[in-house]
Design a protein around this nucleic acid. Sequence first.
DNA 1: CCCACATGAGAAACGGATTTCACACTTGCC
DNA 2: GGCAAGTGTGAAATCCGTTTCTCATGTGGG
Lengths: 328, 328
Amino acid sequence: MAVTIKDVARAAGVSASTVTRALTLPELVSEETRERVRRTAESLGYHPNRAARGLITGRTGNIGLVVPDLGNPFFPSVVKGVQARAHEADYAVFLADTDEDATAEAGLVRRLSKQVDGIVLCSPRMADGQLRALAAETPVVLINRRIARVPSVVPELGDAMRQAIGHLTALGHRRIGYVAGPRSSWADRERVRSLRLVVRDKAVELVEIGNVTPQFEGGVGAADQVLAAGVTAVIGYNDLVSLGLLNRFSARGVAVPGALSVLGFDDIAPAAMVTPALTSVALPKEHAGRAGVDLLLRLLAEPDRSSAIRRELPTQLMVRGSTGPAPV
Amino acid sequence: MAVTIKDVARAAGVSASTVTRALTLPELVSEETRERVRRTAESLGYHPNRAARGLITGRTGNIGLVVPDLGNPFFPSVVKGVQARAHEADYAVFLADTDEDATAEAGLVRRLSKQVDGIVLCSPRMADGQLRALAAETPVVLINRRIARVPSVVPELGDAMRQAIGHLTALGHRRIGYVAGPRSSWADRERVRSLRLVVRDKAVELVEIGNVTPQFEGGVGAADQVLAAGVTAVIGYNDLVSLGLLNRFSARGVAVPGALSVLGFDDIAPAAMVTPALTSVALPKEHAGRAGVDLLLRLLAEPDRSSAIRRELPTQLMVRGSTGPAPV
DNA sequence: CCCACATGAGAAACGGATTTCACACTTGCC
DNA sequence: GGCAAGTGTGAAATCCGTTTCTCATGTGGG
């Protein structure tokens, strides 16, 4: 069916080995042969079978990408970045969505691991131990999670928090709520940690509210608690949560930002679509995806030297309509 | 490194061929051998190398999925459906995002085609001819596009339009705008066609407005034209466009739905997040993804009988706050 | 008791590409 | 002129599993 190396070899009047060499190790064959082989390969429309190649080289030319939920616009953005960078490097991408399920995650990763050269795990939900075990047997890069000796890409969260809190305090807010995400989420623990750190030496009181699912519904459900907490500004675990808050506030007739300012994380597209638009700390998404692939490629090339790499990517506060001066 | 069939064979004291048979053609080996082999395989954690198997069977166990833009929430939903169904059938999914570029699309598809058993093309942008040529050499299923002799999954668009127009006319709207999407889009052409058809025998005037990119910005940009057109209701090409309209209307102080009703297509998540929430005709997304994989699997199993299959999936009008009685 | 036939399992071929090994043939130097 | 080093190429081994071919054993029938 498909044109194989033998077809090219026959057509070019050389052996299969020469075809390989002409295409992948140019310096080993004469200029003349190389050109002839290349032309015949071209004219026959030959492309090496990656599976067959992978069998012998041990490289598949594929990378795996695992995300918790494509329904959260954050992740498709990361996927886009991964895609783009992977294709540039001539890698194809296997995608798996775990539906926020740590068990499914482990299973999918294991299934993937044998068909790919390495895996980019975005916001993994599985336990540290599992993750470490996994990284020991397969090249793995983490996005939005940090574990010793596993390369990772994370946002500059401290800076993000300073921007967020700085913005709110400048507006006069002194009592600020934080609607926490899933307890099992590394990102949430980090956010809380950073927040507390940033808040410590400011005259700001931080009110931590419940743990919600990192979705719109989570925010909707937490909104009334936020109102009851008597804060003048609230930060949601992520934009979906903050959008949920906004939605419920609007339904209850709470003026935003008049009575209450709302701020989110991620800067997903819908943040700019609502009215008032959501002020949000933009976390790297496509950028993180690209950086994740970069790290993975480096890890594949020189495993020893790159296992400790930890990249922190910059964040940026996008000030929009949902934050304003604290009510007097 | 990984445990191969030979390791199992040695451990079980049989030949490699027997291992294969025990695992894939149980009726060819004795009960006793079969069990012994299976147990050793299990205990060694053996899983056949898919690439090697694919080499000889011609099946890779992978399917390709190509979408135009993961940035549009519509597509991640389809991806989720594809994922879910594919994993159920023990297939892995290669994903590619074309960034709405027909040329890139053709290239990506060609690259993918050699590593997968078949491809699900979601809302492809390439020309009919190319698509037909492609389908001739690779098993392909289309989502949101219809071409003779290529299996496809499409929404029941006629019904969708009847629901949309029925809803608006019941609210008293007589002059309705339609903000068209990309001219190259099959979906847009179909929507226009259906709309005209549905409108024909009703006392409704349809005003078609420009062609915009199928994104939020497209809607924002078209909003003022919509206002100038003097309609009492407007239907956007998709939800992103409609959300753009809503956003701009809000900015210009146009009351929705008081002065103008807005309706969209797709029912993406953000539609329910804005205020007023967007009334939208829900098109099958996850469902379409699942159905696409189903069709592809059938196509792989019996190519002759299934090439003509065209599945139409039901749609559902989600009435929300953005539509109301026509102003008097 | 022998033959035809079914059954179970091993050996070998195969799929497509890469890599190692081996072999001609140049070329260069003493 | 002869030997060593180097260059270009082909043959064969290899990757891992599946499939075909073959053979040995055992069963039933005549």
